[in-house]
Protein backbone atom coordinates (compact mmCIF):
# COMPACT_ATOMS: atom_id res chain seq x y z
CA UNK A 1 0.00 0.00 0.00
CA UNK A 2 0.87 3.67 -0.18
CA UNK A 3 1.15 5.37 3.20
CA UNK A 4 0.70 9.14 3.08
CA UNK A 5 3.35 10.90 5.19
CA UNK A 6 2.68 14.50 4.22
CA UNK A 7 -0.23 16.06 2.31
CA UNK A 8 -2.22 19.27 1.83
CA UNK A 9 -5.84 19.98 0.80
CA UNK A 10 -4.89 20.07 -2.90
CA UNK A 11 -3.91 16.40 -2.82
CA UNK A 12 -6.85 14.28 -3.92
CA UNK A 13 -7.89 10.99 -5.46
CA UNK A 14 -9.27 11.37 -8.98
CA UNK A 15 -10.42 9.36 -11.97
CA UNK A 16 -11.82 10.76 -15.22
CA UNK A 17 -14.86 12.12 -13.39
CA UNK A 18 -18.47 11.64 -12.42
CA UNK A 19 -20.99 11.47 -15.27
CA UNK A 20 -24.75 11.18 -15.51
CA UNK A 21 -25.65 13.52 -12.63
CA UNK A 22 -25.11 16.99 -14.12
CA UNK A 23 -28.88 17.49 -14.33
CA UNK A 24 -28.95 17.10 -10.53
CA UNK A 25 -26.20 19.68 -10.08
CA UNK A 26 -23.33 17.26 -9.45
CA UNK A 27 -19.94 18.46 -10.70
CA UNK A 28 -18.12 16.13 -13.05
CA UNK A 29 -14.81 16.62 -11.18
CA UNK A 30 -11.82 14.55 -12.35
CA UNK A 31 -8.22 15.57 -13.06
CA UNK A 32 -7.52 19.25 -13.72
CA UNK A 33 -5.01 18.12 -16.37
CA UNK A 34 -6.63 15.03 -17.86
CA UNK A 35 -3.86 14.69 -20.47
CA UNK A 36 -1.25 14.12 -17.76
CA UNK A 37 -3.62 11.88 -15.79
CA UNK A 38 -4.25 9.74 -18.88
CA UNK A 39 -0.48 9.53 -19.46
CA UNK A 40 0.06 8.39 -15.86
CA UNK A 41 -2.26 5.42 -16.35
CA UNK A 42 -1.27 4.79 -19.95
CA UNK A 43 2.47 4.37 -19.24
CA UNK A 44 1.55 1.69 -16.65
CA UNK A 45 -0.88 0.05 -19.12
CA UNK A 46 -3.66 0.68 -16.59
CA UNK A 47 -7.26 1.18 -17.64
CA UNK A 48 -7.50 4.88 -18.51
CA UNK A 49 -10.09 5.56 -15.78
CA UNK A 50 -8.05 3.96 -12.95
CA UNK A 51 -7.99 5.89 -9.65
CA UNK A 52 -4.83 7.95 -9.18
CA UNK A 53 -3.57 10.84 -7.03
CA UNK A 54 -3.65 14.47 -8.10
CA UNK A 55 -1.00 16.45 -6.25
CA UNK A 56 -1.65 20.18 -6.45
CA UNK A 57 1.26 22.49 -5.57
CA UNK A 58 3.79 19.83 -4.53
CA UNK A 59 4.57 19.08 -0.88
CA UNK A 60 3.49 15.42 -0.90
CA UNK A 61 5.39 12.55 0.69
CA UNK A 62 4.45 8.86 0.60
CA UNK A 63 5.95 5.50 1.50
CA UNK A 64 5.37 2.34 -0.55
CA UNK A 65 5.07 -0.73 1.67
CA UNK A 66 5.55 -3.29 -1.14
CA UNK A 67 7.45 -3.18 -4.47
CA UNK A 68 5.43 -1.62 -7.28
CA UNK A 69 5.72 0.29 -10.53
CA UNK A 70 4.37 3.81 -10.21
CA UNK A 71 4.17 6.69 -12.63
CA UNK A 72 4.64 10.42 -12.19
CA UNK A 73 3.40 12.93 -14.79
CA UNK A 74 2.35 16.57 -15.05
CA UNK A 75 3.88 19.38 -13.00
CA UNK A 76 7.57 18.81 -12.25
CA UNK A 77 10.08 19.95 -9.68
CA UNK A 78 12.24 18.70 -6.88
CA UNK A 79 11.10 15.05 -6.76
CA UNK A 80 13.08 12.27 -5.11
CA UNK A 81 12.74 8.54 -4.59
CA UNK A 82 14.75 7.34 -1.59
CA UNK A 83 16.69 10.59 -1.70
CA UNK A 84 17.69 10.31 -5.38
CA UNK A 85 16.19 12.74 -7.93
CA UNK A 86 13.54 11.24 -10.26
CA UNK A 87 14.85 11.68 -13.79
CA UNK A 88 11.59 12.53 -15.54
CA UNK A 89 7.88 11.89 -16.13
CA UNK A 90 7.20 8.22 -16.73
CA UNK A 91 7.18 4.79 -15.10
CA UNK A 92 9.38 4.24 -12.06
CA UNK A 93 9.99 1.45 -9.58
CA UNK A 94 9.48 1.58 -5.82
CA UNK A 95 10.90 -1.01 -3.43
CA UNK A 96 9.39 -2.06 -0.13
CA UNK A 97 9.84 0.94 2.15
CA UNK A 98 10.69 3.38 -0.68
CA UNK A 99 9.89 7.01 0.10
CA UNK A 100 8.70 9.30 -2.71
CA UNK A 101 8.95 13.03 -2.10
CA UNK A 102 7.10 15.43 -4.38
CA UNK A 103 8.84 18.63 -3.28
CA UNK A 104 8.82 22.16 -4.66
CA UNK A 105 7.48 22.61 -8.17
CA UNK A 106 9.49 24.33 -10.89
CA UNK A 107 6.87 24.03 -13.66
CA UNK A 108 3.13 23.43 -13.61
CA UNK A 109 0.64 23.04 -10.77
CA UNK A 110 -0.69 19.47 -10.79
CA UNK A 111 1.39 16.30 -10.58
CA UNK A 112 -0.19 12.86 -11.08
CA UNK A 113 0.86 9.71 -9.24
CA UNK A 114 -0.55 6.38 -10.43
CA UNK A 115 0.37 2.84 -9.43
CA UNK A 116 0.36 -0.38 -11.43
CA UNK A 117 -3.22 -1.68 -11.58
CA UNK A 118 -4.64 1.53 -10.10
CA UNK A 119 -5.53 2.43 -6.52
CA UNK A 120 -8.35 0.51 -4.88
CA UNK A 121 -10.99 3.07 -3.92
CA UNK A 122 -14.77 2.66 -3.65
CA UNK A 123 -16.66 4.89 -6.08
CA UNK A 124 -19.69 7.01 -5.25
CA UNK A 125 -22.12 7.98 -8.03
CA UNK A 126 -19.92 5.97 -10.37
CA UNK A 127 -16.61 7.71 -9.66
CA UNK A 128 -13.86 8.08 -7.06
CA UNK A 129 -13.16 11.68 -8.15
CA UNK A 130 -12.81 13.93 -5.11
CA UNK A 131 -15.06 16.99 -5.21
CA UNK A 132 -15.04 19.02 -2.04
CA UNK A 133 -17.82 21.29 -3.31
CA UNK A 134 -20.19 18.31 -3.61
CA UNK A 135 -18.77 16.37 -0.63
CA UNK A 136 -18.22 13.41 -2.95
CA UNK A 137 -15.37 11.02 -3.74
CA UNK A 138 -11.97 10.26 -2.29
CA UNK A 139 -11.05 7.63 0.31
CA UNK A 140 -14.14 8.16 2.47
CA UNK A 141 -16.43 9.08 -0.49
CA UNK A 142 -17.23 12.37 1.26
CA UNK A 143 -14.97 14.69 -0.72
CA UNK A 144 -12.11 14.92 1.75
CA UNK A 145 -8.58 15.41 0.41
CA UNK A 146 -5.77 13.02 1.34
CA UNK A 147 -4.14 13.52 4.70
CA UNK A 148 -1.16 12.24 6.57
CA UNK A 149 -1.70 8.66 7.76
CA UNK A 150 -4.05 7.67 4.90
CA UNK A 151 -3.40 4.22 3.46
CA UNK A 152 -4.09 3.52 -0.21
CA UNK A 153 -4.28 -0.07 -1.41
CA UNK A 154 -2.91 -1.52 -4.63
CA UNK A 155 -2.01 -4.96 -5.96
CA UNK A 156 1.29 -4.94 -7.77
CA UNK A 157 1.66 -7.03 -10.89
CA UNK A 158 5.06 -8.11 -12.24
CA UNK A 159 7.64 -5.36 -12.02
CA UNK A 160 8.88 -3.64 -15.16
CA UNK A 161 11.87 -1.39 -15.81
CA UNK A 162 11.89 2.38 -15.85
CA UNK A 163 10.27 3.98 -18.90
CA UNK A 164 10.08 7.70 -19.61
CA UNK A 165 7.42 9.54 -21.59
CA UNK A 166 9.00 10.80 -24.85
CA UNK A 167 9.87 14.49 -24.60
CA UNK A 168 7.81 15.44 -27.65
CA UNK A 169 4.66 14.69 -25.66
CA UNK A 170 5.57 16.95 -22.77
CA UNK A 171 4.75 20.62 -22.19
CA UNK A 172 6.90 23.03 -20.18
CA UNK A 173 3.84 24.72 -18.57
CA UNK A 174 5.95 27.89 -18.56
CA UNK A 175 5.91 29.20 -22.14
CA UNK A 176 3.04 31.48 -23.31
CA UNK A 177 0.03 29.29 -24.05
CA UNK A 178 -2.27 29.70 -27.04
CA UNK A 179 -5.63 28.13 -26.21
CA UNK A 180 -7.96 26.80 -28.92
CA UNK A 181 -11.54 28.01 -28.51
CA UNK A 182 -14.71 26.66 -30.08
CA UNK A 183 -16.97 29.71 -30.42
CA UNK A 184 -20.47 29.71 -29.01
CA UNK A 185 -23.03 31.71 -30.94
CA UNK A 186 -25.79 32.21 -28.40
CA UNK A 187 -24.74 35.18 -26.30
CA UNK A 188 -24.37 37.81 -29.03
CA UNK A 189 -20.93 39.18 -28.36
CA UNK A 190 -20.16 42.05 -30.75
CA UNK A 191 -17.40 41.58 -33.30
CA UNK A 192 -15.43 44.25 -31.39
CA UNK A 193 -15.70 42.18 -28.20
CA UNK A 194 -14.74 38.95 -29.98
CA UNK A 195 -11.79 40.59 -31.76
CA UNK A 196 -10.54 42.02 -28.49
CA UNK A 197 -10.82 38.61 -26.82
CA UNK A 198 -8.70 36.95 -29.53
CA UNK A 199 -6.22 39.77 -30.07
CA UNK A 200 -5.04 40.62 -26.59
CA UNK A 201 -3.00 38.45 -24.29
CA UNK A 202 -3.99 37.52 -20.76
CA UNK A 203 -2.24 36.57 -17.60
CA UNK A 204 -3.49 33.89 -15.23
CA UNK A 205 -4.89 35.62 -12.13
CA UNK A 206 -4.43 34.54 -8.53
CA UNK A 207 -8.07 33.46 -8.36
CA UNK A 208 -7.56 29.83 -9.28
CA UNK A 209 -9.55 26.91 -8.01
CA UNK A 210 -10.78 23.55 -9.18
CA UNK A 211 -13.99 25.41 -10.16
CA UNK A 212 -12.46 28.05 -12.39
CA UNK A 213 -9.47 30.17 -13.42
CA UNK A 214 -9.76 33.92 -13.83
CA UNK A 215 -7.64 35.66 -16.46
CA UNK A 216 -6.58 39.29 -16.60
CA UNK A 217 -6.43 41.26 -19.84
CA UNK A 218 -5.51 44.90 -20.38
CA UNK A 219 -8.93 45.78 -21.80
CA UNK A 220 -12.17 44.36 -20.50
CA UNK A 221 -14.70 42.78 -22.81
CA UNK A 222 -18.21 44.14 -23.09
CA UNK A 223 -20.80 41.49 -22.43
CA UNK A 224 -24.54 41.52 -22.07
CA UNK A 225 -26.10 41.76 -18.65
CA UNK A 226 -26.50 38.51 -16.71
CA UNK A 227 -29.40 36.41 -17.90
CA UNK A 228 -31.04 33.18 -16.85
CA UNK A 229 -28.67 30.44 -15.76
CA UNK A 230 -27.98 27.85 -18.44
CA UNK A 231 -25.83 24.68 -18.53
CA UNK A 232 -22.08 25.30 -18.51
CA UNK A 233 -19.77 23.03 -20.51
CA UNK A 234 -16.38 21.92 -19.16
CA UNK A 235 -13.89 24.54 -20.37
CA UNK A 236 -16.62 27.14 -20.97
CA UNK A 237 -15.37 30.74 -20.96
CA UNK A 238 -17.63 33.11 -19.04
CA UNK A 239 -17.44 36.88 -19.38
CA UNK A 240 -18.79 38.38 -16.12
CA UNK A 241 -19.59 42.12 -15.80
CA UNK A 242 -15.91 42.84 -14.98
CA UNK A 243 -15.11 41.92 -18.60
CA UNK A 244 -12.31 39.58 -17.52
CA UNK A 245 -12.78 35.94 -18.58
CA UNK A 246 -13.30 32.99 -16.24
CA UNK A 247 -12.50 29.53 -17.61
CA UNK A 248 -14.61 26.81 -15.99
CA UNK A 249 -12.57 23.92 -14.69
CA UNK A 250 -13.46 20.40 -13.49
CA UNK A 251 -15.45 21.29 -10.35
CA UNK A 252 -17.52 24.01 -12.04
CA UNK A 253 -21.17 24.50 -11.09
CA UNK A 254 -23.67 22.93 -13.52
CA UNK A 255 -25.53 26.18 -14.33
CA UNK A 256 -24.31 29.73 -14.71
CA UNK A 257 -25.77 33.09 -15.65
CA UNK A 258 -22.79 34.90 -17.16
CA UNK A 259 -22.57 35.09 -20.95
CA UNK A 260 -20.20 32.53 -22.51
CA UNK A 261 -18.04 33.42 -25.50
CA UNK A 262 -16.84 29.89 -26.25
CA UNK A 263 -15.28 26.71 -24.91
CA UNK A 264 -11.65 25.62 -24.62
CA UNK A 265 -10.70 22.38 -26.32
CA UNK A 266 -9.92 19.56 -23.90
CA UNK A 267 -6.19 19.72 -24.74
CA UNK A 268 -6.06 23.49 -24.15
CA UNK A 269 -7.94 23.07 -20.88
CA UNK A 270 -5.36 20.57 -19.61
CA UNK A 271 -2.50 22.89 -20.55
CA UNK A 272 -4.20 25.92 -18.98
CA UNK A 273 -4.80 23.98 -15.75
CA UNK A 274 -1.02 23.77 -15.33
CA UNK A 275 -0.43 27.55 -15.67
CA UNK A 276 0.28 29.31 -12.41
CA UNK A 277 -0.60 32.98 -11.71
CA UNK A 278 1.23 35.44 -13.96
CA UNK A 279 1.70 33.00 -16.87
CA UNK A 280 0.71 34.37 -20.29
CA UNK A 281 -2.27 32.98 -22.18
CA UNK A 282 -3.99 33.98 -25.43
CA UNK A 283 -6.86 32.54 -27.43
CA UNK A 284 -7.48 31.57 -31.06
CA UNK A 285 -10.70 30.34 -32.64
CA UNK A 286 -10.81 26.78 -33.93
CA UNK A 287 -13.43 24.93 -35.96
CA UNK A 288 -15.14 22.19 -33.98
CA UNK A 289 -14.25 19.61 -36.69
CA UNK A 290 -10.60 20.30 -36.11
CA UNK A 291 -11.02 20.08 -32.33
CA UNK A 292 -12.89 16.77 -32.65
CA UNK A 293 -10.13 15.33 -34.85
CA UNK A 294 -7.63 16.12 -32.09
CA UNK A 295 -10.00 14.69 -29.45
CA UNK A 296 -10.27 11.41 -31.43
CA UNK A 297 -6.49 11.23 -31.66
CA UNK A 298 -6.27 11.29 -27.84
CA UNK A 299 -9.11 8.81 -27.54
CA UNK A 300 -7.34 6.38 -29.86
CA UNK A 301 -4.10 6.78 -27.97
CA UNK A 302 -5.45 6.52 -24.42
CA UNK A 303 -8.51 4.30 -24.98
CA UNK A 304 -10.77 7.01 -23.65
CA UNK A 305 -10.19 10.65 -22.92
CA UNK A 306 -12.35 13.28 -21.31
Amino acid sequence: MIRVKQANPMHTIQDLGRYGFASQGVAQAGPMDSLSACWANSILKNAVNSPLIEIGGGGFVVEFTTPVNFSITGAWGDFTLDGKPLIGPGRHLAHAGSVLKIGRLSSGLFTYLAVDGGLHVEPILGSVATCRRDSLGGLTATGLPLSSGDELKYEADQLRPLKLIPRRYLDSYVTPLVCDVILRNSDNFSSIATDLFFNQSYTVAKEQSRMGYRLDGQSSIQSNRPRYSVPIPLGGIQIPPSGQPIVLMRDHQSLGGYPMIGTLTRRSLSLLAQRSPGKVVSFRPIQRDEAVAEFYKYQQFFGDFR
Binding site: F21, A22, S23, Q28, P231, L255, F295
Partner: peptide, 18 residues
Protein backbone atom coordinates in the same frame (compact mmCIF):
# COMPACT_ATOMS: atom_id res chain seq x y z
CA UNK B 1 -24.90 9.80 -24.13
CA UNK B 2 -22.52 10.56 -21.24
CA UNK B 3 -24.41 13.27 -19.37
CA UNK B 4 -27.07 15.95 -19.76
CA UNK B 5 -28.17 19.13 -18.10
CA UNK B 6 -31.02 21.60 -18.45
CA UNK B 7 -31.29 25.21 -17.35
CA UNK B 8 -33.81 27.92 -18.30
CA UNK B 9 -34.60 27.12 -21.91
CA UNK B 10 -31.31 25.40 -22.76
CA UNK B 11 -30.75 21.62 -22.79
CA UNK B 12 -27.19 20.37 -23.14
CA UNK B 13 -26.11 16.83 -23.99
CA UNK B 14 -22.60 15.47 -23.45
CA UNK B 15 -22.06 12.68 -25.95
CA UNK B 16 -19.43 10.30 -27.26
CA UNK B 17 -18.96 12.05 -30.62
CA UNK B 18 -17.39 8.92 -32.11
Amino acid sequence: LIDYCYGFGVFSLVVRPE
